[in-house]
Design a protein around this nucleic acid. Structure first.
Length: 416
RNA sequence: GGACAGGUGCCCGAGUGGUUAAAGGGGACGGACUGUAAAUCCGUUGGCUUAGCCUACGUUGGUUCAAAUCCAACCCUGUCCA
């Protein structure tokens, strides 16, 4: 498996990033002989990226670490159309303003992993709006469209599946692969980009780009895809009760982010350590040999290391310490997520149901009521049995009231 | 443009006049058991000022004591025909 000569492919292979590679020997040779340039495309439909994008980001990270040049391509142009592959969810057409706003948010995430040109590094951030927005339909058809054979496009799995199941495939969607192929060629022209990476579902689209590159530019381009990551029990990664696990500290606090990784299933620990941390493989192997209860040590390392990648070492250590105090000492660590309540309001007394709702632990007071019935709510570690209970200043311990939902989720209520 | 089929809660999917906040499953959350794991079992799964009230079965109107269920128009989706 890791018969690769280039550091780049060797590292990716050893860590489990590789699902498929086109012309592996040739690419390996190229990467061993000179720095190569590769890109991955990202949607900018949201203001931040979530765990799902972490894998591709890590691929770009390793690329830069092994001496190559990564390009993060923002889908500013393709987002304007809206990715049609997501079923019938109302494809919100985002305004250019929103897209640009999202771009800056996403860029902030990337800068944690990659050194961009303006920061003295080699990484490039590109936006396909730069070349897609100005396209002229007829010109595009003549220059690019003529290289696409519909016969061949129809043979792609993604298309074939739709046709066989007699599901509609819109023309827009049919064109999506052409635009993506064009992106690849455009990046090759602009930045001498050699390689496109992506999730395994992108294989067909990437291969299209390779094909177009050969026809239009007589260029040899390459494809590399990563496996689809699911948890050991088969679920898609990255969703929790609160929704997506975002990489932005304002959307998901570093403590919660740490907790996400801490709660990894046993069977996933080693795989995740390889993919989502930069620990040496020897260290990962040692952690992976831990059995039974001891595997929790490995999970803590995973959590701290993964959090450090996104939020920084200090923040990660603090999250680990908060968790230690909360779970191992049963104390109310002062660094738990906190919400503030005006002291006057607290003095007047605030209903437990409302308090939990404000803390974001329950969605509604009805939800809170249900949780009380199920014995899921605790105030200062004492179960709430009366939904009419009110909290006031007398419940403060060291200036805070600890609200808990279940065993794991805690929020401090502080009076201001 | 025409002919069919269909639009139900987070998702899938039953339900064809009243006991339906809507079967069943999935997911999610809580409880028990554990190791902040998995598996398993139990409970919950629209909102509110909760022994009550309000809102909900594509939209809007109508029939009826009573509608997710019947009628009409419209919107949307799929299949087939032009």
């Amino acid at each position: 498996m890791s018969t690769y000569k280039s550091d780049f492919l060797k590292v990716l292979a050893e860590r489990g990033f590789i699902h498929q590679v086109s012309e592996p020997d040739q690419l390996d040779q190229l990467a061993a002989s000179r720095p190569i340039t590769a890109y991955i495309g990202f949607d900018c439909t949201a203001a931040s990226l979530h765990i799902g994008s972490l894998l591709p980001i890590m691929m770009l990270y390793w690329m830069q670490q092994t001496g190559h040049r990564p390009i993060a391509l923002m889908g500013g142009g393709t987002t304007r159309v809206g990715d049609p592959s997501g079923k019938d969810e109302s494809r919100k057409i985002l305004t250019d303003e929103q897209i640009n706003q999202n771009l800056t948010g996403i860029r902030a995430v990337f800068s944690k992993f990659l050194k961009f040109e303006d920061a003295g590094g080699s990484a490039i951030m590109a936006n396909n709006a730069d070349w897609l927005n100005g396209l002229n339909y007829i010109d595009f058809l003549r220059d690019v469209g003529r290289h696409f054979s519909v016969n061949r496009m129809l043979s792609f799995d993604s298309v074939k599946m739709r046709l066989e199941r007699q599901h509609e495939l819109s023309f827009l969607e049919f064109n999506y692969m052409i635009l993506q192929a064009y992106d690849f060629v455009e990046l090759h022209k602009r930045y001498a980009c050699d390689l496109q990476m992506g999730g395994s579902d992108q294989w067909g689209n990437i291969v299209n780009g390779i094909d177009l590159g050969r026809r239009m530019e007589n260029a040899q381009l390459f494809a590399l895809t990563a496996p689809l990551i699911t948890t050991a029990s088969g679920a898609k990664m990255g969703k929790t009760a609160a929704g997506a696990v975002w990489l932005d500290a304002n959307l998901v606090s570093p403590y919660e982010y740490w907790q996400f990784w801490r709660n990894t299933e046993d069977g996933d620990v080693v795989r995740f350590l390889k993919l989502f941390t930069i620990l040496p493989l020897a260290e990962i192997e040692r952690l992976g040999s831990l059995k039974g209860q001891d595997i929790n040590e490995a999970k803590k390392v995973l959590a701290t290391e993964a959090t450090a990648m996104v939020h920084g070492r200090d923040t990660a250590d603090r999250a680990a310490e908060t968790a230690r105090q909360t779970f191992e000492e049963g104390a109310a660590a002062a660094t738990l997520p906190t919400i503030e309540i005006p002291s006057a309001e607290l003095a007047a007394g605030i209903g437990v149901l409302v308090a939990f709702q404000r803390a974001g632990l329950v969605a509604s007071t009805s939800d809170a009521r249900r949780q009380v019935k199920g014995g899921g709510l605790r105030v200062n570690d004492a179960a709430v049995s009366d939904e009419r209970m009110t909290l006031d200043a007398s419940a403060l311990i060291d200036g805070a009231i600890k609200l808990s939902l279940g065993r794991k989720r805690h929020v401090l209520l502080k009076s201001v």
